[in-house]
Amino acid sequence: MHDEKPWPSRLFALIYVMGVLLMVGNAAWHYLMGDFLRILLPAVLALLLLGATLLHLTDPRYQRPSAYLVLISSFLLLAVELDQTSEAIILWIGLPPLLALLLLPPSSALLLNLLLAPLWLVLPVDGQVTYDMAFTYLAIIILGALAPLEQRRQQALLEATDPMDSECQALNASAIHELLDSEFARATLLQRRLSVLAIHLPQLEMAHEQFGARLRLELLQRFCSVAHHTCRAHDSLGRAQTSLFWLLLPDTGETGALMVRNRLISALDATVLAETGAIASRIAVCSPHPSETWTTFEQRLQIKGQALMESTH
């Protein structure tokens, strides 16, 4: 999901404009050299790049197609130029893989580079490419991919250590399970009470189908803020399944939990969204019996949640 987050669009457009200028410069150079036949390609490609720039600016969703447009135009120009010069080939064949790595996600860039490698190595005329050059080239393809891969790894690590749900202000499923485990252990060891509210939001699925992702997000966020306002600071809200939440109430007996449940229901009733009306909710209270084990309690909680979800259908 985060991979598709738009890059800073204007700065990128700036780079693309620089590319256009380089293409125009190339065309102008050929014009000054009197090499009129070779003007056409860079001129056309400059227009193509301009198109890619506009595409990038209009909608961040088009960043991938526009990146491919940039790659195609610069590869074409480079291939034609390489075909006609005999000088400094080694410098220029390094450019295409690096450009691909900068514009595409690491795995597709690596694949593209490996596929195109023979082409770039064969293209220069009369056996200028030695084994050494081929190995150096291979090395830059592989080593170049390390930097974006490292970035991706860091991102994955951050996501794995982030306990929050990606859509709303609640703990994610693994975090809330872990917390339930620890709160249960605490309640057992310290001989304190514990209650859990299982909350099902029946409108969530319907909101997505009928009104799209925006309403679904709004519904989630409104629910979370209402829930946080209703409960105490040390209670924790987590999203056990897509439309099922758990609210852990440490040091609270069944009666206390029922009070929280009623408060929450009335607060949700008062929260009105324009499209769906008040937020509907189904809430069950679950408290561990004395001498109940962790597994049976969790099973009971799961079954209660399941029953809540099925009763609405």
Partner: peptide, 12 residues
């Protein structure tokens, strides 16, 4: 000369 094609790696 040998490593000229690595020059672009500064960008990455």
């Amino acid at each position: 000369l040998q490593f000229a094609c690595w020059l672009w790696a500064f960008a990455i």
